[in-house]
Amino acid sequence: MKPIDLLAAASSIEALWSPRVAARINDTFVKLARIRGEFVWHAHEAEDEMFLVLSGRLCIKFRDGDAWLEPGQALAIPRGVEHCPYAPEEVCILLVEPATTVNTGDAQGDGRTQDGPVWL
């Protein structure tokens, strides 16, 4: 067991929008990612997820308004809520979600869907 330097680990991920599993806690993954630009509108019908900003500034778009997150801020998104992450500049994030969660939710097939978990 070794501590994880979250910022260093996230910064080492080469591909944008490609979450990497940093840890598994029971049936939950803790993932790190680097993101920039706009993702896809999607929802997770069976899973809640949480975004925690490590560096940068992240916008989570909702159909009825936006939520901006600064470093150290987190937002839990309940299952079934349509959302679209957007980062005008590069952001490092930590995601907490069930191991069954598909990154693109119900918007699979757009070319950004990951084929299973990828570990750091």
Rank of each mutant, 00 (worst) to 15 (best):
I13N: 01
A10G: 02
E47H: 13
F51P: 02
I13K: 04
L54T: 02
G56Y: 03
A33N: 10
L95P: 03
E89W: 05
E90G: 07
D5W: 01
L95C: 10
A87L: 12
A15N: 08
A22L: 14
A43H: 07
E82G: 06
P3K: 10
S11T: 05
A10E: 00
R79A: 15
R24N: 06
A15G: 07
V91L: 13
T101M: 13
A8N: 01
E70A: 12
V118Q: 09
S11K: 11
R112V: 00
P85H: 09
D48N: 14
D5L: 03
V40R: 07
W68Y: 07
S12P: 00
N26L: 12
D66Q: 05
W17K: 04
L95E: 13
T100H: 11
H44I: 02
C59V: 15
P3D: 05
V30E: 13
G37A: 13
T113A: 09
Q114W: 00
G105M: 08
Q108I: 06
E45G: 10
L16M: 12
L6S: 01
R24T: 12
G80H: 10
G116P: 04
I25C: 14
G111I: 04
R112M: 11
A67I: 14
C84H: 10
F62K: 03
W119A: 00
Q73K: 11
D110R: 12
I4K: 00
V40M: 05
L32N: 07
I4L: 11
K61Q: 11
M50T: 05
W68A: 04
D27M: 13
H42R: 14
V40F: 09
P98M: 12
A10T: 01
W119F: 15
I13S: 00
R79Y: 01
G116Q: 11
V40E: 11
I93V: 15
R79K: 15
F51H: 02
T104S: 10
I4R: 02
R34G: 12
N103Q: 06
V21Y: 03
D106G: 01
G105V: 05
W68G: 04
E90S: 13
D66Y: 07
V91G: 08
I4F: 01
D66A: 07
R79P: 02
R24W: 05
V102I: 14
V118N: 09
S12A: 15
D115H: 03
D27I: 10
T28L: 14
P98Q: 14
S18I: 01
P78D: 10
K2H: 06
A76C: 11
E49S: 02
Q108L: 05
L54C: 08
A10I: 02
L16Q: 04
H42G: 03
I25Q: 15
A9V: 06
D106R: 02
L54S: 02
L75S: 04
A8V: 00
I60E: 03
A74E: 04
P85T: 04
I77Q: 03
E14K: 07
V53I: 07
F51Q: 02
P98L: 09
T100D: 10
A87S: 12
A67K: 15
